[in-house]
């Protein structure tokens, strides 16, 4: 993704000690336009990881080893009343397709697999390997 023209600035317009605030409102965690969360690196990717919620055991290994923080996490309360993270999806704007998450996934049939970029997510889920056909 190219940087939007209106955000670009020439050298003579940048102030001394220019500060880029990452939040509009730090208390409410509203991200500003300068936060790289709003930047897309999706065009770096050749293959994309597809996430299968039905096979996931919520070990969160992918969350901790993702270098680009692209796993979307939801906080839920488990049976014992403790809070735990539930992986709900992948932020494809931030994913560079390195494949580390697929490598660390521990389930017998991986709940994350790499598919070519042009394959639709639903189509990929239908093609998922089964127990007999690993």
């Amino acid at each position: 993704m190219a940087t939007p023209k209106e955000m670009m600035s020439t050298w003579d317009n940048i102030q001394f000690g220019a500060v880029l605030p990452s939040f509009e409102d730090p208390e409410k965690k509203i991200r500003s336009k300068f936060n790289s969360y709003n930047y897309e690196v999706a065009d770096w990717r050749v293959e994309k990881p597809v996430f299968n919620r039905n096979l996931c055991i919520d070990c969160d290994f992918c969350w901790v080893s993702c270098p680009d923080s692209c796993f979307i996490v939801e906080e839920v309360v488990n049976k014992r009343g403790k809070k735990q993270a539930k992986i709900v999806g992948i932020n494809y704007n931030l994913c560079k397709g390195c494949g580390v998450c697929v490598d660390v996934c521990p389930t017998p049939i991986k709940s994350l697999l790499m598919f070519p970029e042009f394959v639709e997510t639903q189509e990929a889920l239908n093609k998922w390997p089964t127990k007999d056909n690993k």
Binding site: K29, Y37, E40, S69, C70, A85
Partner: peptide, 14 residues
């Protein structure tokens, strides 16, 4: 890790 993963990220992607 399940508890640790609830931490909001302070180093963003992108």
């Amino acid at each position: 890790l399940k508890e640790f993963a609830c931490t909001p990220d302070r180093f963003q992607g992108g």
